[in-house]
Nucleic acid binder design. Structure first.
Lengths: 227, 227
DNA sequence: TTGACATAGTGTCACAGAGACACTAATATG
DNA sequence: CATATTAGTGTCTCTGTGACACTATGTCAA
């Protein structure tokens, strides 16, 4: 009944997405050590039980180290485990999926050489460590699914945003066009958004800025957007 | 960068539900060792890297040990972690949620003294170890949510079942009545059920038996049942 | 100043699937 | 054969998405 000899390697990795120029991007870091030296991998690492109160804190801390800020959205994705996914032996990884506005991280990220945003649809050309490609695909699927029945994608936008921006982010995620009207109905129905005082120019009529109501929880709609 | 000193205790626990006499029940075991000796707890334990190919196998194996069979449905729920949830120190628990037909396990379970089905709505009266009460509530919420947009509850039924049985299981889970008609529409629309050759008596007209198509995946509907 | 254009936002109809509920079908029992 | 009981259908309402035309308000160039 002792646990010493069987305790497997436990790590926390995060799939941090953002949307930039209509493309879904994921943050990857270049591995410095073996195994998979020089390949791209998900940012992550080991729990530090002295400073992390739980695994969410671990994920958040590791992401802050790379981006300079805590992710706007963070949610557990899945635990992946097995004897063969890490050559060093049986390993258990808790994968998170997270969102940020690229406008918020853009300044920091460019200064770090070892971290980089890569378009999710370009990953075939990239050498990815471990089973991180599959994890990213899982995270993408989950994000797409959530986008159909919630406003999760707002976390890819800065504090103030227009409907057009939100629409564009949603379309980048699900890779399908949606109706402006449907989005506005949902914004209205969710009750979690506030109309800002400001408007911003857009090339035509001024666009209304919205903000998330402080402390408002995301709502799940009863119907999906159609695929 | 060594991992030895910080590697926390990692366990796998499962919330195994079934529905019996219109009540959602959860399988609990009586703890024999400290901490929480004599309290009820979720069935679970440590990974055995020699025989478990992953954590799913761990959960499945532990449940089979208690019930005599593998659960019909098994899905990861969440990882719960923290320094205070186990008095022995920082712990990480991967919680699963699982379903079985009570008809399938009923014979075995009664023979084991240390395991017992307890109605989820009676848990206030029960002494539960660790944070297992919260985990069960999380699992219940997830099951309720899934019931609104999928046929997940079929896994609380034996291989052949009637619409009335499925209706009754769904109603026990979401604690609301639903329309027979809506359920039939979904059975039809999902395309994952087969009409069996048999019918069974029911007190009135004979009831059609249905089976899950072999190898069919669960479908997610685009709308929720209303709460 | 004005007209063309571009983007923001609205009005409204069609469509699909859930809710409600009455109706028909089939089986048991007195 | 009448009645009770459960299975299954017909069909209307209701709600929210899709589609798309229409109005509103800004810029820019002639």
């Amino acid at each position: 009944m002792s646990t010493e000899y069987t305790n497997p390697l436990f790590t926390v990795d995060s799939v941090l997405f953002t949307v930039k120029n209509g493309q879904l991007m994921v943050l990857l870091v270049k591995r410095a050590q073996a195994p998979f030296t020089g390949d791209w991998a998900l940012p992550g690492g080991f729990i530090d039980v002295l400073q992390d109160i739980n695994t969410d804190a671990t994920a958040s801390r590791k992401l802050e180290a790379k981006t300079g800020l805590k992710p706007a959205y963070l949610e557990q994705l899945q635990v992946i485990s097995g004897p063969d996914r890490d050559p060093r032996g049986f390993s258990v990884t808790l994968a998170y999926f997270a969102l940020v506005a690229w406008q918020d991280v853009s300044p920091q990220i460019s200064s770090v050489e070892s971290a980089s945003w890569i378009a999710v649809n370009d990953l075939e050309k990239t050498n990815l460590a471990f089973d991180h490609l599959q994890i990213i695909q899982m995270a993408k699927q989950r994000l797409q699914q959530k986008t159909l029945y919630s406003m999760t994608p707002v976390f890819c936008l800065p504090g103030q945003f227009t409907i057009a921006q939100l629409k564009s982010v949603i379309e980048a995620i699900i890779e399908k066009p949606i109706q402006r009207k449907s989005l506005m109905r949902r914004i209205e129905a969710s009750g979690i958004f506030e109309i800002s005082e400001e408007k911003i120019p857009s090339g035509g009529r001024m666009a209304q800025l919205y903000t998330l109501k402080p402390g408002a929880d995301l709502v799940n709609f009863e119907r999906n957007l159609s695929l």
